[in-house]
Design a protein around this nucleic acid. Sequence first.
DNA 1: TGAAATGTTGGGGCG
DNA 2: ACGCCCCAACATTTC
Length: 479
Amino acid sequence: MSQSPVIVWFRNDHRLGDHPALCAAVRSGGPVLALYVLDDAAAGDWAPGGASRWWLHHSLAALGDNLAERGVRLVLRRGATVSTIAELAGDVGAEVVFCSRSFEPWARALEEVVHARLDRDGRQLRRFAGTLLHDPDTLLTKAGEPYKVYSPFWRALAKQGQREPQAAPGKIAAFEGAAGSDDLGDWKLLPTKPDWAGGLRETWQPGEAGAFARLERFLDGAVAGYREERNNPGIEGTSRLSPHLHRGEISPAQVWQAVSARAARGDIPQKDAEVFLSEIAWREFSYHLLYHFPSLPVAAFRPAFGAFQWQADELQVDAWRRGRTGYPIVDAGMRELWHTGWMHNRVRMVVASFLTKHLLVPWQVGEAWFWDTLVDADLANNAASWQWVAGSGADAAPYFRIFNPVLQGVKFDPDGRYVRRWVPEIAGLPDDKLHAPWTASREVLGKAGVELGKDYPEPIVEHGFARDRALAAYEKIKG
DNA sequence: TGAAATGTTGGGGCG
DNA sequence: ACGCCCCAACATTTC
């Protein structure tokens, strides 16, 4: 007697380990039909951008392979999620659909509609945790309010105790019936002409295996000393797990468990582990904010910023995007982003501060560029972080905290390794001029083979002027 | 998960 | 020996 099949609807949980929805589906006893739906319309403005689509392609390919090893085929469908799921469930006679909860506003809305439709058809949608350590509606202040400040949120989270990750199901009974699937290649998620993904291929291995390779590498290497080294963009001082976490190729519970276990054994310094885990908690905080304040990606969290006098000189924005601002640390970051689909977090703060404060460009412009170019583009992290830097967010950096791009370069890239890698045209400058080429004498510039304004731009805006202008603009909305 | 201006302190050069 | 000044070095405050 065969049970009716169950559908596992994959959505940014591209893994088999620690997947409560998948485990529950397997436990239900019904043969499993794995489904992914590409539904750009449902995501609206937040359909994946270019770099993210490249990642998505390879992530789905890897998930498909992982499932195939268990005898399960991943069915790919493109179109409206609701009708796709409802019709597939009808075609194969599935009574239950399992999924992990998602927390983007559009994804939550979609979940509700799918639930309503299945319910109407006499079927069920069962939703599970897995994307976050804690569902955003479970951690609240004593007053029952959402947290608006990070440190109490972090204290509450750390105190909470984290969920033990679940093992991947040992054996999965696969649905053997007919269910047509698109061909991944036909989705055209990969760039063709021009193929700009060379740097991405060199840098990343999307998929669950790649995610764990990254985690292991981090645990054996950079996590010891993380507290200091994470600020140096010229070395591999961070985990680089962000794109894997975004697509759910590894869960935050798995990361948390692995890091805290090593710290408990004394294999890695307690403080380094704690600082790293607090970064995982920043991700949780971002989702918490997005969940409780769904307009976070489009509107300033602090209402006063509604009146801020932004401007947007298209030429300057273009120089920022292309890494031609004349400030080496800024340009290095923007070029790393373009080439690899990722940017070191220290430098993200510097380039974001430069765009919003030196150029007075609305943070949403930067948010949109990051959305298109980051392989880890994540609505919650991206929105919360841009607002944090711009000063308009919850528990944000004070607006008057304006990074000096020269000092940031000197402080965090002291040997110039990062700038020389990404801005090779000024690599010949000595260390003490590298972060401020315009201060070099004619002789020094000549010896380095640099003609300012030709080989490398003059600064598009003078720091002192820009700082004063930004402070004056802020003064107008204060209070 | 700042920078810059301003204030304070203390060592050393010097008359 | 002493006061005076300079100026790092550090601390505080302001933006």
